[in-house]
Design a protein around this nucleic acid. Sequence first.
RNA 1: GGGUGAAUAGCUCAGUCGGAUAGAGCAACUGCCUUCUAAGCAGUCGGUCGGGGGUUCAAGUCCCUCUUCACCCGCCA
Length: 588
Amino acid sequence: MNSTLAYLTTQLDRAIVAALGEDYAGTDPLLVLSSNPKFGDYQANMAMGLAKKIGQQPRAIAQSIVDNLDVAAVCEPPQIAGPGFINFTVKPSHLATQLQAMQADSRLGVPVADKPQRVIVDFSSPNIAKEMHVGHLRSTILGDCIARVLEFRGHDVLRLNHVGDWGTQFGMLILYLREAYPQALTTADALDLGDIVVLYQQAKKRFDEDPEFKEAARQEVVKLQAKDPESIKAWKLLCEQSRREFQVIYDRLHVNLAERGESFYNPYLAAVVEDLKVTGLLVESDGAQCVFVPGFTNRDGDPLPLIVQKTDGGYNYATTDLAAIRYRIQTDKAERIIYITDAGQADHFAQVFQVAKSANWIPENVEVSHVPFGLVLGEGGKKIKTRDGESVKLKELLDEAVDRFRNDLEARLVTESREETPEFIDNSANVVGISAVKYSDLSQNRTSNYIFSFDKMLALQGNTAPYMMYAYVRPQGISRRGNIDYDSLGDNAPIIFTGELEINLAKHLLQLEPIITEIERDLLPNRLCQYLFELSQKFNQFYDDKKKYPILEAEEPLRTSRLILCHLTAKALKLGLDLLGISVLERM
RNA sequence: GGGUGAAUAGCUCAGUCGGAUAGAGCAACUGCCUUCUAAGCAGUCGGUCGGGGGUUCAAGUCCCUCUUCACCCGCCA
């Protein structure tokens, strides 16, 4: 908790006891950030709720609490307003003290978690023998951001890529390749991944239409599961080729994660079914081994099973997910497991978690959560597709963002008569293009569907990556222009406020810590984006009023004070963007 | 049919534990560069928070109901 908030909570608790008696000790003061700056910085809302209980007017209750309240070390005298709100305004002297502490702290006042946890973030998870497409974007970007926030807070994070590298799909692909292009099964890189994807689609069509092919594909899966050397060799070739292609994308996105695909859990699948049998949860239904848990029904209203072993003896993804939960808890010692997949899988995960709980596989101290996200849609809210109706490849989407920004930049350089090297243009386009794609996704509440728009994400104004990156470039420009080494400004220089815009900026800087701990809990990166956007706006307002707030031209000690505000803003923006997985540029 | 989620300004979206007069950005219009990058800033315009009921001192937020949309619903993942 933010130290100001903690202080006010403590003092309010004392005042409540002094005013209303020991019975009211521990009453939640309902202390929150003010809804409107004109009401100050914080407001306590408990007086209205206490009114009926105590039988007094809420304003009278608020008054008696304020009469017993001592917050003079931090705040101006509290004000009672409206029906009984208690409003607090933080003293500039306290802001200055806190900013100095922030300046002296390499973590900008964001402490390491009290109890670091072993956390697994399961994200990205593309399928082998398919190309990464727009559908993998959100999981990859959100997962990376969430992992970064947890890592920054000192948690021991294991980032896992649960790739689809097993199952029915491989039977049909291997079978089809044997007919259509047998070299692909024995020779590395005999086909481009793109061709394999096309062949996969043909195989899938055949699988759906031709019962004989379907049965033969099942036999191929059996061979693969039985570790038939030829099948295993083909499987490994396909996985290796896909893995290299995925890595190209991850490198471009600066995303790190460890591949641990579905096949990893194969040795543990039989035990899952066996243990479910022992616990008495396993039921045979239409030849399949199932678990029924309450609350899940099918379209006829009958109980919906979680099938853990198919009629043909094979296992499916539910079995793999159960085995993965067990492995992650028992072997990886995870205390928090986070699955970042689309909202369409919510029912599946709810069911899998429920089964795991029923089987007592999830101890009290372990939290398992599905972090769902909405679909990526094209403009107009329709499914995003190419002209041919195919899903858009991630590579092409990133290329287009980079190209569009490069064109914008080059046009701007011409109109501004600026000369920049090809390396500068190239690097800027790459960093801004990729950042724009990431930021536009992260800046929306992940739970809703997201309309993908190059024009909006690359816009130079508004809540976009370019705007934020530009806000960072400005304080960096000041340090260059003034030959200032921000790091040698020292930790003890006085912070002086001469106006409202400076104070607004200072107050916002100090909200970094509560925002980050909030995201650690709620896993909603858009809150961080909102914070950074507002920080950028507040800095720009301060920066823009050159007459009232000169920086390099100011007299000491004001000059150093303002340079510290610039430095803190730059550091907060850089840290915040880094937690989003976005790099900054020193010059744009 | 059942389940889940959504519906807020012309468009794209925020809205924290229920708190004061519902906020941004875009678009449209108006101002501001001799001076740290104007990729910026200031301002104007724009709302029955899908409809109806309820709970509450207080509802965009909680409950019920209706409408519309999206996604999911036995051996794919």
